[in-house]
Write a protein that binds this DNA or RNA. Structure first.
Length: 775
DNA sequence: CTGATAGCGGTTTTT
DNA sequence: CCGCTATCAG
């Protein structure tokens, strides 16, 4: 085994300790993926394990695909009759359930359908509606989240119903109905895939025995991100033998919000007594500077196993720090630095990534890239195939190929609008459910039996013949031509053309792009089915990544990746750490781990930036610099900001303190006169102050009306003020709202009143007079 | 049935 | 700012 020679002693031990439970605590950039792939190759080539007896579990499908590729390079698959199963927990469970779900009885068969998050949301909403629960009392999102969380923590709806907390009890009712609906539809949500698998393995020893004999060597990657059902599954699969190897890094556990339990990795040695612990602490990725910053930051976490990474790599450049005025200025700085970097680095060395906490931050960055003509890839945002117009047209294709596809049917029956409204559709779906017919069958039935109004019947008939005509054309048209036919004959093109908006034009262009994609697919010899399947596999940004000059993504999406040049943007209180995490110590530690993940993505050069203010939800929000900045080793930072900045002051303070201690003159060491203090507005009260200040400034610029000199600022008067509008209210007025209580009018934007209600935040009202009274 | 608009709320993410 | 929903007039 030549490849063992390329490993360090710890890595080699992790690869060759094949019997019994093994815990590999692998630091960032320590060659974790390499260890896993080599271990699989070692088991097959040196230990004579049949590849089919190996199961490797990864966190994402992409990671699984990459691992497969790497293994095939190490061991030629043609030499073996079987290959190791490399999959995510979920796809493994789908395989298991496609063989065994019928064992659970009831309505379940092995042909179950899988509900994604959108389907799930639809069901939850319909449950809330049918239980007459006001969406304001229990937002569907919250209910969905609570149900999923409960399922992942092993709670059932009964425990919720018994709760004394009325809110929990309400969730229990929704939970119960939700579960009944899924069962009635022979459908499983993502959580069920795991839970039902666990239940089957528990309930049917012969099934468990079967899988225990099948998978004799099990490897789990990113073990710190496993949740309770996944742990239960692993336990059940390793009942008979314990050749289990888990690999992970507790410092990179960032999925608590979806029930990942860091205790799984921290307590592994208790769960599997006699487990061998191997630590990989040499980092091969980053410079000493970057690694030291990451180490310094993560040390602030209390709940962690001590683990200091080291590297033989060079010291590298200092970490560059930049404080921008606005979010836009921050983005401009970043793109300019990327352009500069690209002047001296080529190919893989030129790869850059901009990381941020929330997806909302991507927009300014995208705009900045477009301004300077930088090609970028946005990971995690809406991909091309997720756009409504693309999904609509694809749904037409699906329906043409398969008339029983109910989801596609529902999507296109009134898109573009063709006079088939809610009443008609409700009747149609209700009828289908009652008589056990597909929507398509029922469509014909309803027309024949005159069950609907004449106008609706005509619309239904038109839709039916449209689909039938397209079905016929599908026989002889090329893929691209069929797609064109769909776009034209469905009226989709006309619908968009008539809209005459910029947005509609962009949508038409997207559809054109889809047609050329179909033509290309056909040239590659793919069928229309392949084309549709491909559209369903959303995250295929890999092809784009090759020629992309920058990758924009959230830090979550960046886990497992590395780039020579990395920017961590938006280092501001409220953003990162996120507002929702500041109240809890546990969540703050998770935010810090997230920062740690961000820092350790960088190989050569790291930039850390923040802005004094940025537009959030349309308002100018002033944020304080992130507390995490202060946790960085300041001596490793180079200040790139012009003028006043958080870092400049920090350094200034340090110098003053030093001079004070040594008895010198504090002013002597100052390079420049201090800049006027930056005012930080980040709380409700400060917003009010900020507004007062703005008002004062405005008043100074525009003399009071009636004066004869100077000029007046053209007031943005509303063009028309319909009766009952916000007229009569002005900034500074105190008002009462029937729901939010008393508030202060901050400003007026045309017809809109912007009001701050203490405890509820800033609200906007257009047709406000009805609900507001002056006090 | 459709389109306009007032009101409102808004993490992170994969399967 | 953006997207969703309830509501209402046409």
């Amino acid at each position: 085994m030549d490849f063992l020679k390329t490993l360090n002693p710890q890595q080699r031990e992790a690869v060759t300790t094949t019997e019994g439970p093994v815990l590999v605590l692998a630091g960032a950039g320590s060659g974790k993926t390499r260890v896993i792939t080599y271990r699989i190759a070692y088991l097959i080539e040196s230990c004579g394990v049949r590849p089919g007896n190996i199961l490797a579990v990864t966190f994402t499908n992409k990671a699984a695909a990459e691992m497969k590729e790497r293994i095939e390079k190490l061991i030629p698959p043609e030499r073996y009759a079987s290959s190791p199963l490399i999959s995510t927990f979920h796809s493994f469970c789908v395989r298991l359930l496609r063989r065994n779900l019928h064992l659970l009885g009831g309505n379940y068969t092995n042909d179950f359908t899988i509900y994604d998050t959108d389907d799930q949301a639809k069901i939850v909403k319909s449950c809330l509606k049918d239980l007459h629960i006001d969406e304001k009392m229990l937002p569907p999102r919250n209910a969905q989240f609570a149900i999923s969380g409960a399922k992942n923590h092993g709670q059932d709806w009964e425990s919720f119903l018994k709760s004394n907390d009325p809110k929990k009890a309400t969730i229990g009712r929704v939970f119960k109905l939700y579960e009944e609906r899924l069962a009635a539809n022979n459908a499983l949500d993502f959580d069920d895939l795991l839970l039902k698998s666990v239940r089957i393995l528990r309930k049917f020893p012969e099934v468990q025995e079967y899988y225990n004999n099948w998978f004799r060597y099990i490897l789990i990657d990113e073990y710190q991100d496993t949740n309770p059902p996944q742990y239960a599954l692993i336990r059940l699969l390793t009942q008979k033998q314990q050749n289990l190897c888990v690999v992970g890094d507790p410092d990179q556990s960032i999925y608590r919000f979806r029930a990942a339990d860091i205790k799984n990795i921290l307590d592994f040695e208790n769960h599997y007594p006699g487990a061998k612990l191997i630590k990989l602490t040499e980092n091969y990725r980053s410079t000493k500077t970057i690694l030291s910053a990451a180490n310094t930051v993560i040390k602030n976490n209390k709940e962690r196993k001590e683990k200091d990474l080291f590297t033989a790599n060079s010291e590298g450049e200092k970490i560059h720090y930049y404080q921008a005025g606005s979010g836009e200025a921050e983005a401009d700085f970043i793109v300019n630095e990327i352009l500069r970097w690209r002047r001296s680095h080529l190919g893989a060395e030129a790869q850059a990534a901009v990381l941020y906490r929330t997806n909302a931050q991507s927009r300014v960055l995208e705009e900045a890239c477009r301004r300077v003509g930088l090609k970028y890839v946005l990971v995690g945002g809406f991909s091309f195939y997720q756009r409504a117009e693309i999904k609509d047209v694809i749904a037409y294709l699906k329906l043409v190929l398969n008339h029983t596809d109910a989801v596609a049917f529902e999507r296109v029956i009134n898109t573009p609008p063709r006079g088939i409204g809610k009443t008609t559709l409700d009747a149609l779906f209700e009828n289908s459910r009652r008589e056990g017919l597909t929507c398509w069958e029922n469509l014909g039935r309803m027309i024949e039996e005159n069950r609907v109004q004449a106008r609706a019947a005509n619309a239904l008939r038109a839709f039916k013949s449209l689909i039938e005509a397209l079905t016929e054309q599908a026989e002889h048209l090329s893929q691209a031509d069929l797609l064109k036919a769909v776009i034209k004959q469905s009226g989709y093109a006309k619908w968009l053309e008539d809209e005459r908006s910029e947005d509609a034009e962009a949508r038409l262009l997207n559809l054109e792009e889809l047609v050329s994609a179909a033509a290309e697919a056909e040239l590659r010899g793919e069928t229309i089915r392949d084309f549709i399947d491909h559209a369903a596999l959303v995250a295929d940004t890999d092809a784009l990544r090759e020629d992309a000059q920058v990758t924009l993504m959230t830090i979550h999406a960046a886990k497992g990746l590395e780039f020579p040049l990395v920017f961590v943007a938006g280092m501001e209180e409220g953003l990162f750490p996120h507002q929702r995490s500041v109240a809890s110590a546990v969540e703050m530690e998770e935010e810090r781990r997230l920062f740690y993940v961000a820092l350790t993505r960088a190989k050569k050069q790291l930039f850390i930036t923040h802005a004094e203010w940025r537009r959030q939800y349309g308002d100018e929000v002033y944020n304080e610099p992130s507390r995490f900045l202060a946790e960085l080793p300041l001596e490793r930072l180079e200040n790139r900001s012009r003028g006043d900045s958080w870092l400049a002051r920090k350094n200034d303070d340090t110098r003053k303190r030093f001079i004070a201690v040594s008895g010198g003159n504090p002013e002597a060491g100052r390079a420049a006169a201090p800049k006027p203090a930056m005012t930080v507005y980040n709380s409700v009260d400060n917003v009010r102050d900020f507004f007062k200040m703005q008002q004062a400034r405005k008043a100074a610029a525009a003399p009071a009306s009636g004066s004869n000199y100077g000029y007046r600022q053209p007031e943005p008067e509303p063009k028309r003020s319909p009766a009952g509008t916000s007229g009569g209210f002005k900034a500074g007025d105190r008002v009462r709202h029937d729901k939010y209580g008393t508030g202060l009018i901050l400003k007026r934007e045309g017809d809109k009143l912007v009001i701050n209600f203490p405890g509820y935040g800033v609200k906007k009202f257009v047709e406000a007079a009805a609900k507001l009274e002056k006090i």
